[in-house]
Design a protein around this nucleic acid. Structure first.
Lengths: 348, 348
DNA sequence: CTTTAGCACTCAGGGGAATTGAGTGCTAAC
DNA sequence: GTTAGCACTCAATTCCCCTGAGTGCTAAAG
């Protein structure tokens, strides 16, 4: 059954009041806030209905009303006015994103910190690839007889390199052969296929070359796996301590531990540009008393990033959602601009 | 004036009791803990003396005694029994250090987390170079006409690389010239010298080559500067919330903000293998009510790392110090083993 | 049928007084 | 120098009362 307009109006007032004050809100202040058109008694009748229908809760008789998760849900679905960010704010957000984007996880943690400081709640970020990464091209640069540099370009056009120490001396002349072998047989393959193929060529090449080859491949496998691992970075957990609902050090500690140690279970929805999870809608027990807002942004063609914010159920959904999508847009634009053009396989 | 042996014994008992319980300790429990040889009244007399001499403090008449910073100082200097780690523990520490050390800051944060979880206090880590980093060798790998890969080996033998998008097409034949130029003129130079030299060669080479050159150099400068920047990583700030002295959310928040936002002012002594700073001995105001234990370890020849632990003044100095030096040793060994041999300048 | 005014009732939170108990300082005896 | 005894202090705890915000209900007004 639908709520009357007035009930909705009241619910909205209650929620917004509660978001501000974190105190149960009473009939009188509601009446005042609604312009004094109706008396507090009327409001009380309406409130009783709203409690009955589960949109509000009462900590105890003779306390004001507090929104229930169901109430919040209705609020974010229908009542909440989508906030528009001011130009100044958008500007600030974009400024705070002017970061070097060399290391992916630097970006994550920096952007996370920025988000958190904008919304005053803890934030988390992650990037998930849509395809498995493969190597696109190899290069070996001799340094001396016992070491050389491996350079690997990955399918997302990022480049990794490292100095490789060799167990035994290798003839410089043989490097080109090896590079050809690498580029011929090991590009476009998933890490596990790589190890596979390494076995296959084992007998066809001289042992000392094979040693170098397998060192290179193991480096490649490691790097690819590391690069495609979904990493979750959290920031600003300390913001929790500012909130009255976490004045209790134990609760704060619990949630902080969850956010720093069990980040894997933070919500990472894979659809839609923005998702709001309210209290018990969260799967993780640790989040049952908190709400989470998650937005996604695009990186290139086949990667997707997520930014999430964790806060009390009474968090200011409208403003968090607005800022979060501001960041998501900013990031999408940032990556869209600087990132490599679509695809252009240079594989030979 | 020296303290009598008995006074020292009493001081030690008081401190160790207080470390355990965080409660002022009274004469009776001291008497009990000392084997009942003396009565609590005697202890009281001694305690009065110790207060007089500034080794102990009394929150108010009729509370037990609490160690003063001066008392802790004497304790760590003389009374504390240097704890030896059990073999099992050393083993555990070394295990927790079996990490990939590709990215320096990954190591830092991982080791920081490990330390923190071992001592149950927040930890921080940093690495400071003793020399400025320079480039040791350059390489350019063509990808297509509008992009190539820069590979740079730095003076500490780490290798950095990145894909470079070019504003205009470059003739492949010219790359070798460029590489020679890079290796001839820009190796061994500090980042600022590099920019300098770039100016000098400006007129001597064709413009489109110069464009590529300056892109490369700017990448090199950035990477070198980033790599030589001292970075401080903190971990486990949440541990603070477990401590009774930080039950107050405001205090906890203050210290956490300090540790995450103003890390630069965390103590980074540059001498000795281990340093203990007690309460007011810290320069930063934010640390006046906490103690800090810092140990250092060596990375290769010209880098030095620091691990620090922040805790309440009543922290368990003996065990923290022991574990910390366990970690320091572990890290020194780890780097000593895997790290590149001393020096071997391949600069041409 | 809805709204309002009036009134008795409930209950968390705050302030103050009383109580408790750990621990002290002092003194006098051993 | 050490100990027992005793009066004293003071934080912390408990209890109680009070206050006030806010409710639910009823009866009257619209």
């Amino acid at each position: 059954m639908e709520l009357t307009d007035r009930k909705k109006k009241i619910l909205k007032v209650v929620i917004e009041d509660y978001i501000r004050t974190a105190e149960p809100v009473g009939s009188k202040s509601i009446a005042a806030e609604m312009g004094g058109k109706v008396s507090s008694a009327t409001i009380r009748n309406e409130l009783a209905d709203l409690v009955e229908q589960g949109y509000l809760e009462q900590p105890h008789t003779s306390a004001g009303r507090v929104p229930s998760p169901k109430g919040y849900r209705l609020y974010v679905n229908e009542l909440m006015e989508r906030q528009r960010l001011s130009l100044a704010e958008t500007e600030k957000i974009n400024q705070s994103l002017q970061m070097k984007m060399e290391e992916l996880d630097h970006i994550l943690s920096q952007a996370g910190r920025a988000v958190s400081s904008f919304v005053n709640y803890p934030a988390y970020m992650s990037v998930t690839g849509r395809k498995t990464l493969t190597a696109k091209r190899f290069e070996l640069l001799p340094v001396d007889e016992r070491s050389c540099i491996v350079v690997m370009m990955m399918s997302d056009d990022r480049v990794k390199s490292q100095l490789l120490r060799l167990q035994l001396k290798v003839d410089l002349d043989q490097l080109p052969t090896l590079v050809n072998l690498l580029n011929g047989h090991f590009t476009g393959a998933s890490p596990s296929e790589m190890s596979q193929r390494l076995m296959n060529v084992a007998e066809q090449i001289p042992p000392q070359l094979f040693l170098l080859l397998s060192q290179t491949i193991s480096y490649a496998v490691d790097s690819l796996e590391e690069a495609s691992q979904r990493e979750i970075v959290t920031a600003g957990t300390k913001e929790l301590l500012k909130l009255p609902e976490f004045r209790d050090a134990d609760k704060a500690h619990q949630l902080m531990s969850f956010m720093t140690d069990s980040k894997e279970s933070l919500p990472l929805p894979d659809d839609g540009p923005m998702k709001i999870l309210i209290g018990p809608e969260n799967v993780s027990d640790a989040l049952k008393n908190t709400s989470v807002v998650v937005a996604s942004y695009d990186i290139g063609d086949d990667m997707r990033g997520l930014i999430g914010v964790v806060g009390p159920t009474r968090m200011d959904y409208a403003s968090v959602a607005a800022r979060l999508s501001g960041f998501a847009d900013g990031l999408t634009r940032l990556f869209g601009k600087q990132e490599l053009p679509p695809k252009e396989d240079t594989k030979e």
